[in-house]
Design a protein around this nucleic acid. Sequence first.
DNA 1: ACCTGTCAAGTCTGG
DNA 2: CCAGACTTGACAGGT
Length: 332
Amino acid sequence: MLVRLGYVAMSVVVKNASPSKTMTYATFSKLGDQEAALRKLERISAENIANTLRLLKHNRAHDIEMYRCSSKLIPLLGHDGLGDWDPIERLSDAFAELGQYAKSHRMRISFHPDHFTVLSTPREEVLKHSRADLERHVRMLEAMGLDKSAKCNIHVGGTYGNKETARARFIRNFQSLSERIRERITLENDDKTFNALETLEIAEEVGVPMVLDIHHDAVNPSAQSADELWPRIQRTWEGCCRQAEQDSGSEPAALPPKIHVSSPKSEKDPRGHADYIELPPLMAFLRAIAPSTPRLDIMLEAKMKDDALVKLMEALRGEEGVSIRSQASFEL
DNA sequence: ACCTGTCAAGTCTGG
DNA sequence: CCAGACTTGACAGGT
């Protein structure tokens, strides 16, 4: 099994390269000149995209081929107080350059819209915002020129005291999205509400790949263990990007399944994310699925970001059966 | 230079 | 029914 590692949004190694600089709405409102305020927001956006490109270059130097973009690239985008302001088009050159760099180095890029994108919501306003947020994330991926293998990962959402109706509402709302949006979505099991089995059943029903989070599964387990569910989870990834394979031309490779990995912050806060990754539980899962899994991509969700990736690779050197392939990948 | 409180968002809980 | 907790990185404003 060939395993690649990636990290989320910001680096603790590269300094002054935040992809999430912002401006609060309070500050925006206090600025007298609206036009100037919007220009400032667009300048921050351009800096965030430029910093993201710097991070991709850093990633390349460290053989990191997987990266999740910050969902805060464009501050206040979608905020009610900004009307229909949307600079994605005006930033298209910067987005295109970013995507071109990712593509030319075969990097897997994703988004994870915030928890406020909830398709299970009973509130019409929330659904409207969620649709718009998904639309914007997809437009950013399109502006980068990335094919359907670049996904937006979301959760099923809240349960509102009745998981069954929430599930039905999610499915109905999901199916009302355009195909263009639907084919960009992956579904992740939650640490409080929809567990791995419940998320898998929904992913199967609506036909999207499932991202298994093994930390969420540990704190919010389902009737079956992650190992047991894995063959079904793996199947949700099969053929999900056939078109993308054709588009990529000479090298038709299936999109590997992706999992999220983090470790509990403490006994007091088991759902929180620790600075680094604890190897033993991860190794147990990897050894269980390795025989049936040719490729796997792991998104690390540790506080120490890319430093946690480096430390994990160091720890892997001592593991039996592991052969290091690069600074950010190994075979098991 | 550093510290503390606030911000965004939607859901959920406690009172 | 409403206020506060939750989460996260970064702003905002104070010293």
